[in-house]
Each structure stands twice: as C-alpha cells, then as structure tokens.
Design a protein around this nucleic acid. Structure first.
Lengths: 343, 343
DNA sequence: CTGAAAGCGCTTACAG
DNA sequence: CTGAAAGCGCTTACAG
C-alpha cells in the first residue's frame, strides 16, 4: 500500500501539499500539482477511505435499510428489489458506496439503526424496507443525518412513493368503464407509515364516488398479510358478504391470485364471473390464467428521485416532504364486462 | 460522539487500558475491566470503525460483487438474489457488514475490483455475479485477500456451486423413465468459468449413455443468452435438425418457456408432443401452462457454505477448492411419455 | 505557493 | 496489572 508520504518523498513536497494536490484544494502551482498527480498515478496511489473518513468525518458510505428477515421475498421483492438495484447505481454514480444497515447484530452489539450508522459513520441513509421501528427512524433523521424513504411515510423523512391514489382511481375508472358497479377491494396490512393499502382504496372510492356509487365497507377486506392465502380467504369473505360483487381490485398480485384461485375453486370463471386487477406486475402475472391486469411501480424513477433528494440533503439544498411517482397500468386479460352469475 | 478518551477521563484510567477492557485483550484486573465496561455502557460508547480499521487493518467489511448493469434481472435474479439474501445474513451473524464492490466508478476513479477493495480495506470478498473479468478476480485472490465464489469457477478462488452434473443426470434419468429416447438440450452462454450450461449437459449425456443412447451434437443448442428469445429460436433450430425429438432439457426456465412457446406456435401440445424440463424454478414457472418441471438451486445452502469457507479463510483454516450443492428436482406437469407426432 | 504541527479515534508494542 | 509513546493515513487550520 502506498501512501501520501511515499508520494511526498518521491516528489520532494510535503504530505499536506500532496493532499491538497490530490484533492484539488489549496492554492498550489500548476506545476507542483501536475508533478504530484503524475507521481500518484505512476505509483498507483489509492487513498485510504478509513483514514480520510477519520479526519474529515465524511465516509462516502450510504447506509441502506433493507430488511429481509421479516419478509419472505428478500431481494426478489417486486418493488424493493428493483428499487435497490437502481438506488445502488445512482449512489455509485455520485461516488458513494452502499452498505447494508441492520436493526440488530449480535457480534458488535448493534441494537439499532442509529448505532449502526454511528459505527460506520455513514453520510446518509436510504430506507427501502425497514424493520417497523418508525419511531427510531424519525430519531435517526432528527440527528441531522440525511435520510430518504423509498416507500414508507415516516415523520421527518422525505418520502418517494407511488401515487397510489391515482393508481386506485385509474383502476376504478377502468372497472367502471367495463360496466362494474359492484366492486370489492382487498389489501394486506396497512398503517400510518405504510399506507399503500389504504391509499389505493381511496383512489378507487374516488372514481366510484364520481360515478355516484358508494363502495360500502362490507366490500372491503383489509388483511394482515399481502399473501395468496389472505387473498383467497378474503375473497371468500367478500363473496359471502356481497354475492353480487363482479370485480375485485387487489392491492398486490399475490392477493389477486389468491382471490382468483378462490373464485375458480367455487366454479367461477375469470374474468367472466369475476374481473380482477392486481398490483406490482410480478413476473408470474403474465402467465397466470387469465393473464393478470396489474400496475407496475416505477422503481427506476423512485430510485432516481430518492437519490436526488438525498444528494440535495447532503449539500443542504431544500427538499420536498413527499414525492409521488405514477405507476403504469398493465392491461391484460383478467377484466371484462360483468355478467349475471347463478349460484 | 463519545470516545475512548472520554471513558478514560471518566474512569481515571488511560486510553490504552480502556481499549484493552473494551476488547477483552491485555491482562486487566476484573474490577477495572468492570468499571470501564460499565462506564462505556452508561455513556453510550460506540467504537469508531474507521479509526479501528486504520490501526488494525481490519475493517469488518466484506466486499460483495454483484453486478446488475450487465444483466436484466438485478437483485431479482432467481439464483443470485436469493444467494445474496442469505450471504448477507450469514455475514452479519459473524459481525461483518456487506458493501457492494464495483468494477468501475467514475467519481473516485475506481477502475477495478482490486482498487475498490483497497479503498475500502475490505477483509474479504464474496463473488456472486461478477463482471466477466475473471483474470482480475484471480489477481485479487492472489493478493491474499480471502475470496469465495458463489457460482463461477475462477482459478485460485474456492467455489460453491450447484451440482449441475448430478442435476443433469437426474433430468436424464427422469426423461428416460418416461420413455424419451430422443432428447434435446438448450443452454445459454457457457465458458470455462461459468460452466453451468455445459455441466448440465454432461450429466444429461451420462444418464443417456448408461442407457446406451448417444445424444448427438445436432440435438444440442448452446446459445449466447439465457433468454426466452434464444429458447424460442433454439427450439426451432433443433426441430429442424431432428424432427423426432420428443423432450427438451432447458438450462433455465426462461429458455424452457421460449422453447415451449415455439412448440405451441407450431401447433404442438406440451407435454404431449414435447416434454420440457427447465432449471431455476422461477416464480412464474408454476403458472405457465403446463406448469413447468424444473430444478431449484439451494441458495440458502450455497450461501451458508460460502460463508463458512470465507470465515475459514479469514482465520487461515484449510479450504476446499470446490463444493457442490445438490439442486432439488421440482416435478410438475411439463413432462409425460412421448407420442408419435404428425407433421 | 508550501510546510510544520496537531488531530481524527483507536491499538500495539514496550516499560515498569 | 497499568500507562506513555508512537503510529495507522489523511486533512485542516495556521504560518510564513
């Protein structure tokens, strides 16, 4: 490993001068800068980030919060996996490295994201899929550390998130256009911080209200998980409540598939007896029978905007509280006009 | 931020003594250790990793090589995404943090994995999905830096990889059991370092040779990409060469789907007219019609074994050159006995 | 325009 | 059993 002192010795200048030349700081003469740069180049000098971080308090490390212990999908999650891919690329383009942050690690007795941030001296953090300790995340941001959230809405932290209300509205308009007046909605867990499930419903209802149609709460099922099983059960529940429902908007594709499976098990045909719209455009959705109509969240744009917000925070520029990104409607074959069913 | 000196002042001991107490090194008396530990605890002390790394040369950082710029799937890749999930968890359990390494970054003029490793002083590297610069990776390992590869075979680096020959053999036995004597094979790009495509063929041929059947090269298509398009085209090519082929072993599910789509477009029925086995058990494979029989690579075990090998390297224990992990055969509905086709 | 001094937070010999 | 000294590689005021 060759250091700044090796270059100093080689060129006859002092270490601080070498440092300035390397960083382009301080008023050095063209020639000395030139000489030092050339020496550094030919000697194969590479800065030591740990040393630099120690004296500058800038690590060029961005903490990424992406928990997979508490969900089944890991990096293969349809939204988060893609967001991470692009977040990482954006960060690298800005000269930052990505490091995973953890809520708990035994070995170093890391008991919080905050501690982990301290240990590693990260310059900022990107929250993609956190352990649900929002209080702690708010505290982290209150620390002054730049943060951005790519999905969850957390007090004190700017969020970039899909325009769920608009998507729900679009789903509603589409279903109305096909002639559905009795529509059901199924979602997984939703709360103040993670509100995709409720926002999509707001949009759906808005479209129906505009048409003078009220979607009663008995047509809505908010479940604990975003799984096929829950979709299956919720569909059964809704159909028991309102046998005349002819279409379902499911808050994700897994729920949609569960719901369709239930209908099939009851001898119903999709979409003739039940039209269904999902969300997330999973890779399997184009192969389900019938091919599932869904929404595709724009991971690339979510990542890009998140990155911009983060970089702006780092340099102290003003930042928005929340940015909404439109989702793309993917029309396939799981929706048609309603027909009268016989039970 | 509170430092070792703050604790020293607080407890009346010196900084080195505090350091020893914190690290459990040096022969300190029980009482002083106790006092220092308590003070550290109550003062909320957290070590600064950059400082520690600077003096110990140990960063507790593991470089992860996972390129996504050169492939479409990113973290959603059916094998690599899962491997990364588990690798990260294993590493954390051992007290290491994961940081992504890059082949090229402009900002800090990182021009190689080696440079990036230097900059960040990583303790080891896990190669999941590298940019194809195997020569450089070998050089990196020759540096003495502990490395492990989770798929590619790279000179000088221990590899953990699916037992592709065994899987191919199993596919062959299965197809033979169903009565298929004319079988075709389609794979994407394969080479000395990334040889899944050729190994699976070796296993397939072995099974058939045992049955006294030779699989001629005209029944084999090795293409440039592992995509649906290539699978589609390769199927057409094989059928033109040998119209009597009744079964296909595809080296991944995308290729399998492309092949099946071609057959369908020709009016053939799957599996009656063409039986197909894929590889990777993608999430969409259970929904394709017919449901695709495939192999599932054991990402969890691959990650676990890789981790053990890496940790052993770090402590200087002997390591294997290569470890083979069995894949699980997932039987679905894309294979049946052959029937005579009419063209 | 350039350099001597001190410091970032920690650890490692070496004394005593 | 404990501490003074020096060092890890870099940068930041401060002089001149």
């Amino acid at each position: 490993m060759i250091t700044i002192y090796d270059i100093a010795k080689e060129t006859g200048f002092s270490a601080p001068t070498v440092s300035k030349a390397l960083n382009g700081t301080g008023g050095l003469s063209q020639t000395t800068r030139q000489k030092i740069l050339e020496a550094a180049e030919s000697m194969g000098y590479k800065p030591n980030f740990a040393a630099r971080a120690l004296s500058t308090k800038k690590s060029y490390l961005i903490g990424i919060i992406f928990e997979d212990k508490y969900m089944a999908r890991g990096f293969e999650h349809p939204l988060f996996g893609g967001v991470l891919t692009h977040i990482r690329n954006n960060l690298e383009a800005n000269g930052y490295d990505s490091i995973f942050l953890s809520h708990t690690i035994n070995e170093h007795s890391v008991n919080s994201y905050i501690e982990h941030c301290q240990l590693r001296d990260v310059d900022a953090v990107v929250i993609i899929n956190p352990y649900e300790d929002y209080q702690q995340l708010s505290e982290l941001a209150a620390t002054g550390l730049p943060c951005v959230s790519c999905n969850d809405i957390i007090p004190g932290i700017p969020t970039v998130i899909t325009d769920n209300v608009a998507a729900g509205y679009q789903a509603g308009k589409y279903l109305l256009g096909k002639g559905h007046t009795k529509v059901g909605y199924i979602s997984g867990y939703t709360n103040e911080n993670s509100k995709a499930g409720s926002e999509r419903l707001v949009g759906l209802r808005k479209a129906y209200e505009e048409a003078g149609i009220d979607i009663p709460d008995t047509n809505v099922a908010i479940r604990s998980y975003w799984s096929r099983e829950e979709g299956y059960n919720a569909m059964g529940y809704l159909l028991k409540q309102n046998p005349d429902i002819t279409a379902i908007f499911a808050a994700n594709d897994d729920i949609a598939i569960g719901a369709m499976n239930y209908c099939k098990d009851q001898g119903m045909k999709i979409p003739e007896d039940m039209s269904v719209i999902g969300f997330d455009d999973e890779s399997f959705s184009e192969f389900y029978q019938p091919q599932l109509t869904s929404f595709r969240q724009n991971r690339e744009l979510i990542a890009e905007v998140s990155n911009i917000i983060l970089m702006n925070q780092i340099i102290g520029a003003p930042i928005p509280e929340i940015k909404r990104i439109p989702a793309d409607f993917i029309e396939r074959s799981s929706v048609c006009g309603p027909r009268t069913r016989q039970f």
